[in-house]
Amino acid sequence: MENLFLVFIALPLVVGGAVLVGAWLLAKIMPGDAAMAKAAAAAQAAAVPARGPDYARLTPRRKSAFRTGLAVLLGLALLTIVEFYLAALGSVALMFVIIILKAALIMVFFMHITAVWRTEEAH
């Protein structure tokens, strides 16, 4: 019983608390000079709108990017399932192929590795 309390209640609280305290401390350290902090407070007081002025203009681009993200997620999920069943067959070589494919999907579509060599901002 004591174990259950520690594992399911105390530990999540400690880890969650550590994350929040860490974030709060970093937020306190990072804003920089007083003017910046004041500007941030003013911005917060003004309440940031849910959508910016460029929202409508950027809508087609946003939809296309969301669709790409969803397609990549489905691809990763499918490859993970295949990988799981390949393990039962003991096909290590094929599993490595799948690992490389998954890594490539993440690096190209999520991490935008090609942006490192891009000269203009098209992200």
Binding site: A50, R51, L58, R62, G69
Partner: peptide, 12 residues
């Protein structure tokens, strides 16, 4: 990824 796309397209 969705969050990144959203902020790049003004959807806060």
């Amino acid at each position: 990824n969705r969050a990144e796309v959203a902020i790049a397209n003004d959807d806060r």
